[in-house]
Simulated scan of single mutants.
Amino acid sequence: MNILIVYAHPEPRSLNAALKDFAVRHLEGQGHHVQVSDLYAMKFKAVLDADDSVEHPAGERFNPSDASRRAFAEGTQAADIVAEQAKLQWADAVILQFPLWWFGLPAILKGWVERVYAYGFAYGVGEHSDRHWGDRYGEGRMAGKRAMLMVSMGGWASHYSERGINGPLDDILFPIQHGILFYPGFEVLPPFAVYRTSRVDDSGFAAACGALGQRLDGLWSDAPIPFRRQNGGDYAIPALTLRPELAPGRDGLGVHVADDVLATAV
């Protein structure tokens, strides 16, 4: 199988780097093919702007969605965008690896998503009608592929629990797992999380590698998070609201998971 790791940490001697290197060795040792987009080492341009098209007319008002659509359709995207899109098309599974900074993605990884997920590539795909509101949330160009987050945090696991001060980790990651990964069609596996990163010693690192190895071995066998498919009948179209007979009396992020449970693997 082909696995793409999109990696976002600026320090090559970090815990994240060591875990990334372990993941590559482990996957290649199992006979898989691995590519790594090391965004900081690549000095990947994080800012979406008019330069993302090599033929943006000088002086023309910049509309991000329209410019993205035209550049993708006309083959005028910047070379680094085209290269990352080719990696996504090559991959059977994608791992986004990053430290959780200010409750979200590092800016360079957010920029990778904004630039690489072009209109016509990752969004704006499929029929839009009163019966089918685009190929997204379970459909789309990434359908048939799998994805997983490898995320590290300085806080304790309890800080990210159901009653923890930071809020449940599954809620924090929902915009990434549901919005960035499930939206274009990935089957999304529960995240691999490492807590208290500054306190991970040799034995803790060995334990983390052991747990990570098990998760990597399950990339194609572990059950994905059962997010509800947009066009599968659970949502009224075009309102895109969950039908009232599903999860009655409830609201919030959990209703978009078929069994109302987001399972986090540590």
Rank of each mutant, 00 (worst) to 15 (best):
P106N: 11
D130Q: 06
I176G: 07
F103K: 12
R196P: 00
L169Q: 01
R115K: 09
L173P: 09
Y117H: 12
S203W: 04
L173I: 13
V113F: 13
A107R: 06
D202Q: 13
A143K: 15
E139G: 00
G179V: 10
F121E: 02
G120Q: 06
Y183K: 14
S158A: 12
D170E: 15
G138H: 01
D201S: 05
R146P: 08
F205P: 00
L173T: 12
Q177V: 02
H159T: 08
Y137R: 02
L105H: 11
Y137W: 10
G154E: 05
P191N: 09
L105P: 10
G144M: 05
M150E: 02
D130R: 13
A193F: 08
G167W: 08
M148S: 04
W156N: 11
G134A: 08
A208F: 01
S221N: 09
H178N: 11
G210A: 09
R146A: 09
R163C: 01
R199S: 14
G155D: 08
G138N: 03
G124T: 08
H159N: 13
G124D: 01
I165T: 11
I165N: 07
G138K: 03
T197Y: 03
A211L: 12
P191M: 10
K110N: 14
E162M: 08
G124C: 05
W112S: 08
G210L: 06
G179I: 08
H159G: 07
D171K: 13
D135Q: 07
I165Y: 14
G124W: 03
F103E: 04
I172Q: 09
G210S: 07
G210E: 04
I165E: 14
P168R: 13
K145E: 02
G179E: 08
D201L: 01
H132Y: 05
Y117I: 03
S152W: 01
A193S: 14
Y160W: 13
G218A: 14
A107M: 11
G126V: 05
E127W: 03
P190K: 10
Y119H: 15
